[in-house]
Design a protein around this nucleic acid. Structure first.
Lengths: 346, 346
DNA sequence: CAGAGGGTTTAAAGCGCTTCAAACCCGAGT
DNA sequence: ACTCGGGTTTGAAGCGCTTTAAACCCTCTG
């Protein structure tokens, strides 16, 4: 409110206004026990009147603990944004705050993590980081670390530090997709791969195993090539399939973006989905949920993931647990929308 | 590196290690003039060896000026992410740092701005904020403010504080689209609106004016309804058009997301684009650039916008300019891709 | 009426870094 | 021998808040 050109209002100013010590004001403002109801009221009123805003830097510096959790995300990913939101809530509920650092073109994972470290974070949560196991282990030696949606494989040596891991059972996810399709009557089910990375591997393995279990012949379309997991990959896969002349009756894609690329290329070539080909994605992206896409997809429990991640952090920070807890693996779920149907008879 | 369980390494530790005063270390680490080459080398070496990381909170608190620019964005928007990246670069070049605060479901514009204010930001940049003019003016009275991609209309009273404004000439943008289509031979050009908001108004006005100038009959499809500017709006518009039985030969959409919805609904209904209908979007979203979309669209000069925004901030902060400079309006550009073509003869 | 005990308030010591005036050192100039 | 000036280094005072032990002030016992 106060548009006075003067200096920013400090805690002392409020104290002076009310006629109490800065200590009291600090206590009141943080809702700490001590001050009487009357003092509280007067301080709150004055703070409001003067338009006082606490200085985060100062408060952070003075506080014993920062109660800050650093989060690394990729701004571009809606999935990350989603998880971040739930993390925010979960952290808040436990009395923690989130500092987020995004990775961009000009700012790699390492730099983003450094920013976090410089910001007094007591723990770090990394969503599906690309860093090699050795680097992660090294980081984990410095600060409590939670890996979200990424397994640590191969596990670091026995005496190396080990981060907590919270992830979705991705093998089960693609198996779910195969189940669903097989249940509808499909037998020719192809898979579009997601390139390198542990996540892609898990999903592929899940598909392969599920196919093997049912005695079906797997068919994996390569997912590498620059930006893996993008629409382009899906388009290429569709083109490859079309070029062969005979399409499978169903395709499972590494993720929704790939699935959307697939969908689009199929539509452009006059292939009816789900009439001629069924498609299943992975992530339950907002993209997939959009009415006009209506993609059947495997979803991750973002609320659960966020919750577990925060629990892991709290267990280390407040619970005094020194080393990583057991890996937490959440089950994925399948959301059936409009891109899957029984195969066309004949 | 140092995985020692001990306390975090402080500036004093480095100073002690080298045998100089903390003051010298501080100077060296910030590249400030003073210390001799030899001192520099020794300090840098020790800092490296001890794995020293400066504490941002402490540094921020001690510094006279924070050189921090607060940026408000919506994580979900790729356009915002894009601008943010360029802002980051531009700010860095001028010796400023960015603090970003994102608006989410559970965290409105106001709260996000408060976080920024609490973080010692010397100036704020808001990308297309929804807040009413009065609120923005009030904010501008507190802190140097730059409005990006949003005009201030109606202008606040004469004695009210006024933010700097950097935006794209949106009227010109849609006019560009109409130009292009008319140039191809189209005369039945419809427009899908973007709901309330100054941006939507400008774009619509540009369309209407351009149509009037050419003596063409405008046709605006409503863009309101929850989340305006989304794919849904495009789908509804396409359905409305299809229901009428006769399609225009070209459609200009408020933004790319709307255009994509439009595209999708048309494809589903067997309408060839650009054979039967041409479509133009707005924003030059990564979405539009994607190979399989190939949307002809109007783009904004994000680098220019970011640069001007930072210039405006610097002019106020370092240049001593007290009040807002002139509104900066950048010209949009048209990127022709594969969704526009001459109308089908006959 | 002295002393105990509980609820409030506060003085003072930081948190880890920056800043800047003052001190220092040394060879050059007088 | 002595001052001068420039390049280096540093002591010390904060930045605005938190925290803790100690001081205070009552009212309540014994």
């Amino acid at each position: 409110m106060a548009g006075n050109g003067g200096r920013r209002v400090r805690l002392d100013d409020v104290a002076a206004e009310v006629g109490v010590s800065p200590a009291s004001v600090s206590l009141v403002l943080r809702g700490a026990p001590g001050p009487s109801a009357e003092t509280r009221a007067r301080v709150l009123d004055a703070a409001q009147r003067l338009g006082y805003r606490p200085d985060r830097a100062a408060s952070l510096l003075a506080r014993r603990r920062s109660r800050l959790i650093g989060l690394l995300i990729d701004v571009r990913s809606p999935f990350h944004a989603d998880v971040a939101e739930h993390l925010q809530d979960a952290a808040e509920a436990r009395g923690y705050d989130l500092v987020l650092s995004t990775i961009t073109r000009s700012r790699g994972e390492d730099r983003a993590v450094e920013t976090l470290l410089d910001s007094r974070c007591e723990a770090l949560v990394l969503i599906g980081p690309d860093a090699p196991v050795a680097r992660l282990s090294e980081l984990a030696a410095t600060v409590p670390l939670v890996l979200l949606c990424r397994r640590l494989d191969p596990p670091p040596g026995a005496n190396r530090a080990r981060p907590d891991v919270v992830r979705t059972a991705d093998e089960a996810g693609t198996a779910l997709a195969v189940d669903h399709l097989h249940g509808l009557g499909h037998t020719a089910i192809a898979y579009v791969d997601g390139g390198p990375g542990t996540v892609a591997r898990d999903r592929r393995d899940g598909y392969l195993r599920a196919m093997a279990t049912r005695g079906l012949k797997p068919r994996v379309l390569p997912g590498h090539g620059t930006p893996s997991g993008t629409e382009i990959i899906g388009i290429r896969a569709a083109e490859a399939l079309l070029a062969e002349g005979h399409l499978p009756t169903a395709v499972v894609a590494f993720n929704d973006r790939t699935a959307v690329g697939l969908l689009d290329a199929l539509a452009r070539n006059g292939v009816d989905v789900p009439g001629r080909v069924s498609v299943v994605g992975y992530d339950d992206d907002p993209l997939a949920r959009m009415a006009h896409v209506g993609l059947t997809t495997v979803g991750q429990d973002t609320v659960g993931l966020a919750g577990r991640a925060v629990e892991a952090v709290v267990a280390r920070l407040d619970g005094g647990r020194a080393d990583a807890g057991p890996e937490q693996v959440l089950e994925p779920y399948l959301t059936v929308r409009r891109t899957t149907a029984p195969p066309r008879p004949g």
